[in-house]
């Protein structure tokens, strides 16, 4: 897909390549946030540092996708898969996808952990259900 990265967002994607989920943390208001920005969306602060997350959280919402419009070419063969919003234990919510096929047993509140997945030259922070 090769969406271009800025010098700020590249830090996130490079960390994924190294198997780490890193989010920015605002030193002015002491809050983490996602997605990467050049200023904190809570207070406008620009004293930001990158912190490694545990990569664990819960499913905040989900959708089993049966019709893949756009996206990676290979997706049409992968449906149904599950698009998720993850509530990270450390605070921010992320939009992501569960690895593998959609499973009817998925529900809001299920525990998940990050599962880095290689696709077309990118390493993507997908998630997997645990327990």
């Amino acid at each position: 897909m090769n969406v271009p990265h800025s010098s700020t967002t590249a830090v996130f994607w490079d960390a994924c390549k190294a198997g780490q989920l890193k989010l920015q943390h605002c030193q002015d208001c002491d809050k983490p946030f996602y997605y990467p920005r050049t200023a904190c969306p809570s207070c406008g602060g620009t004293r930001l540092e990158w912190r490694q997350m545990k990569g664990t959280g819960t499913i905040y919402s989900f959708s089993h996708v049966h019709l893949a419009l756009g996206g990676y070419k290979s997706w049409e063969a992968e449906v149904p898969f599950t698009l998720v919003q993850i509530q990270l234990d450390e605070g921010p919510r992320m939009l992501s996808r569960l690895v593998g096929k959609a499973e009817e047993s998925v529900k809001i509140g299920d525990r998940v952990t990050v599962a880095f997945t290689e696709r077309e030259g990118e390493t993507l922070p997908y998630f997997r259900r645990t327990g």
């Binding site: 897909m1 969406v3 271009p4 996602y34 919402s61 996206g71 698009l83 992501s96 809001i108």
Partner: peptide, 23 residues
């Protein structure tokens, strides 16, 4: 927002509205 959306879902509206619907 495609940089942080397109790699995960279908980059089209129904699935994204569906996340609000499910919640």
């Amino acid at each position: 927002g495609e940089e942080f959306e397109a790699p995960f879902g279908p980059p089209s509206p129904p699935a994204h509205y569906a996340l609000y619907a499910q919640r």
